[in-house]
Design a protein around this nucleic acid. Structure first.
Length: 807
DNA sequence: GTTTAGGCTTGG
């Protein structure tokens, strides 16, 4: 039967039977029934896509008492298609209408004064008759006689009939297989409520509005190349569209087209629903929605695939902002896909998230001090893990979202900022010390650039990839741990808490990833490596043996002669008590010695006449006939003392096994290979202070330099490695090696340092971790065979005086 | 059944 709007008097077909509104209910077949009522509410004609329209109206039974509003007498009509447009044009409030061919459904909006059901007039079957006055007064009859009948819109009716042919009026409830039509984004009409598909160009995670809802803002496009922004207001976060990245595809049902800024904005309207899809070609088309009863058919699959293909060819998506911890550069804004390991409040506007993504950041990461008792999740991790865990500071409005997160969650943090340099971190005690050149991650307040946090479902492609990266890291860690177990003495295997205090600092500026010792060993020589290690053992255990003498000229190294050796040289020199005339440039003096002593009867002193005349007689003395003890004693009274002996009636330096110069407590040795020792006139003309260098030049001696040489066995989870501590040993210990030769305090300092790094007793776990820089190079061993050598360089202890071993 | 917001950072 054609859809008709009849005006004036009604000729209702004879086969139709009237029923009262109060008798309407769901279930029975109402095909041959009509209702008659006065229009008490007439809604606006709402355009939809594809020239479709809807209109809502309420009619009140004509037999109801006047001014009655009761569920027994009033019922809603939902008119669709041409019927809606015709009704809008033809019917006025107060008109009496006859409606037939309707479907009865439970009204989603039960109103107190309305019938719990509503009448859907859609498709080819329904008819509306507008009745004339005589019909108005009509009383209930089995077969009302219709008045004049006129068909107003036959051509539209035909269209509507074809479009709605699939819908059967035989069913008494709304068909579940509603056919959705989707409006292209260049065909939006103001005020229309439409269904759309689009590729997401930009989006913000839901954020709290000043109203009662959260708002998801997004911009979408489709094959029409129109760009439309959307505001989705929903009170529950879980109902918001699940958009993970630009390029995702979204389908929205029932959004209202509202004009905004010379374009349209789509705002969620009643009955809104959204489903999103990964926008990558080839990925499975899996709808993402919290809605259990979403509508999805083969057509949707096709639309998604068409949009994916079009998007891949034509859509200029913003450059992917995703980075890993290993690729992030200072100053970058980026999206981080990661797993949450722990979280802790920092202060009321800031929460710290401890996250990892299975990759290692080449930059030193910011440390944040938090209250351990306020931490959700583990408060500490193994050093290997600590090295790849990033502390992300979440500020302001994002703190609430952070509060919902649980350790183990897979996250994407959008528009995270990496900041290198001095970072002052808010903390429980107000502020924490600024850490220089550490990379800090901040999720600043606000929603600019889509800032926010989103939990990703475990089945998402990005989480699968993240899990692979984390699994690979953990496998590496496990392998290393196995090596560690086999390489560690049984007594060291314990579960003591691991010290994570940082006690060394690299002073270099190498931009290099920290690596494991096994990676260092696998690398070619001539490289720089940053490692985090513990000292497993060191040599020599007797630290005075680490003190060496080194010739910068010939690069030979020798041990510092011990006291007995030196004494013997002096004793031997004293045997020759033959007097020596003073050189022409010198003045001579003698001090008689007690006769009971075995050696010479006098100490012979020689001074530079020039220095004497300058009044600087205490700056330099050549001393003959003194034992080591006497020289040492006199060295407090003279700036420089050069021990000499008689050799063929001439003054000569002692054997170079003994110091060539005593300068206060310091003793200077000369290189036997590079020196041509003789007692010559020092060039003191115009010299204020006689330096050791000036004396050495006069003596023709190449001075040896003091140094500390240790061989450290370093250890990490990947294995162990022998490295030398030599070139930068003074930097490392914060001592002067020459002082260490004479100064007990310096010696104690080195001793305590080594004991704190490698306690003679106790577990491996008690040994602190050191961040050090290693340099590898090729050197020839004693047999002339080349081998790779490692040196610990550019590294200093953070504390100048480590605590003495408490034991 | 209304309102909210409507992109575009240098900030701890």
């Amino acid at each position: 039967m054609p859809v008709r709007v009849l005006s004036q008097s009604c000729h209702v077909p004879a086969h139709l039977t009237r029923t009262s509104i109060s008798a309407i209910c769901c279930g029975p077949n109402w095909t041959d029934t009509f209702v008659k009522g006065r229009v008490v509410h007439k809604g606006e004609l709402v355009p939809h896509d594809d020239d479709d329209f809807t209109l809502k109206a309420v009619i009140q039974d004509v037999d109801s008492p006047p001014d009655t509003a009761s569920p027994d007498f009033s019922i809603r009509l939902m008119l669709m298609g041409a019927l809606a447009t015709d009704f809008s044009k033809t019917v006025s409030l107060g008109n009496v209408v006859v409606a037939s061919g309707f479907i009865v459904f439970n009204s989603p909006l039960v109103k107190e004064k309305l019938h719990p059901c509503a009448l859907l007039l859609s498709g080819a079957d329904p008819c509306i008759y507008v009745c004339g006055p005589e019909v108005n007064s009509m009383r209930r009859k089995r077969s009302p006689r219709a008045a004049e009948v006129s068909c107003l819109q036959p051509q539209v009716n035909a269209v509507v009939t074809r479009k709605r042919a699939s819908q059967s009026a035989q069913t008494s409830t709304v068909p579940k297989t509603t056919k959705y039509t989707y409006c292209r984004l260049d065909e939006l009409k103001p005020q229309a409520v439409v269904n759309v598909y689009g590729v997401v160009l930009f989006f913000k995670q839901p954020y709290k509005t000043l109203g009662s809802d959260y708002c998801t803002f997004l911009k979408i496009t489709d094959q029409s190349n129109s760009t439309i922004s959307c505001n989705i207001f929903l009170p529950k976060l879980e109902d918001h569209p699940k958009i993970f990245k630009a390029g995702d595809i979204i389908r929205m049902h029932r959004v209202k087209v509202t004009p905004f800024n010379d374009s349209f904005n789509l705002v969620k309207s009643h009955g809104f629903s959204a489903v999103t899809f990964d926008g990558t070609e080839g990925e499975p088309v899996e709808p993402r929605t919290s809605n259990q009863n979403y509508h999805f058919e083969a057509d949707d699959q096709r639309v998604v695939e068409e949009l994916r293909a079009w998007s891949a060819q034509r859509v200029q998506l913003p450059a992917p902002a995703s980075m890993t911890l290993s690729t992030v550069q200072p100053r970058a804004y980026f999206d981080l896909t990661c797993q949450l390991l722990a979280k802790a409040p920092v202060d009321s506007t800031c929460t710290m998230l401890r996250v990892w993504d299975g990759t290692r950041c080449p930059h030193t990461l910011l440390k944040v001090l938090v209250e351990p008792e306020a931490t959700v999740g583990p408060t500490s991790f193994s050093p290997e893990r600590e090295r790849i865990i990033a502390n992300v500071l979440i500020y302001d409005n994002h703190v609430e979202a952070a509060g919902q997160l649980q350790p183990g969650d897979f996250l994407r943090i959008y528009n995270l900022r990496a900041i290198q340099g001095s970072s002052r971190v808010p903390g429980p005690t107000g502020s924490q010390p600024a850490e220089l050149d550490h990379l800090a991650f901040h999720l600043h307040g606000g929603t600019a650039y889509g800032r926010g946090i989103r939990v990703l479902p475990e089945n998402s492609a990005d989480v699968q990839e993240l899990k692979r990266a984390i699994a690979a890291f953990m496998q590496e860690e496990e392998d290393a741990a196995m090596l560690d177990v086999w390489g560690t003495p049984p007594e060291s295997m314990d579960t003591e808490p691991v010290s994570t205090e940082r006690i060394t600092e690299r002073t270099c500026r190498h931009d290099t990833n920290p690596v494991t010792l096994s990676e260092v060993q696998g690398s070619d020589h001539g490289q720089i490596h940053h490692v985090r290690v513990r000292v497993k053992s060191y040599q020599p255990q007797r630290l005075h043996q680490s003190l060496k003498l080194f010739c910068d000229k010939c690069s030979t190294m020798q041990d510092v002669p011990d006291e007995d050796q030196v004494s013997a040289v002096f004793a031997e020199a004293c045997q020759d008590s033959e007097p020596c005339p003073a050189p022409v440039w010198a003045l001579y003096g003698a001090v008689p010695l007690p006769s009971e002593s075995a050696g010479p009867s006098t100490l012979d002193l020689y001074f530079s006449s020039q220095l004497m005349s300058d009044g600087k007689n205490r700056q330099l003395m050549f001393l003959k006939g003194a034992g080591l003890e006497q020289v040492t004693k006199l060295s407090s009274s003279y700036l420089n003392i050069v021990p000499v002996r008689s050799s063929g009636g001439q003054l000569a330096p002692l054997d170079l096994s003994a110091p060539v110069l005593f300068r206060g407590r310091r003793r200077f040795y000369g290189c036997k290979k590079c020196s041509n020792p003789a007692v010559r006139e020092p060039n003191v003309e115009g010299v204020e202070v006689v330096s050791e260098k000036l004396v050495a030049e006069a003596l023709g001696v190449e001075l040896l330099r003091y140094g500390l040489l240790l061989r450290l066995e370093l250890q990490d989870s990947s294995g162990s490695l022998d490295v030398l501590l030599w070139r930068d040993s003074e930097l490392f210990f914060n001592v002067c090696a020459a002082d260490a030769a004479t100064n007990q305090e310096s010696q104690n300092h080195i001793h305590h340092t080594m004991e704190s790094l490698c306690p003679p007793e106790g577990s491996t776990a008690r040994r602190p971790w050191l961040d050090v820089c290693l340099v590898s190079y090729e050197a020839k061993d004693d047999r002339g065979i080349s081998q790779k050598v490692y040196q610990l360089c550019h590294t200093t202890l953070c504390r100048s005086t480590p605590d003495p071993d408490p034991a």
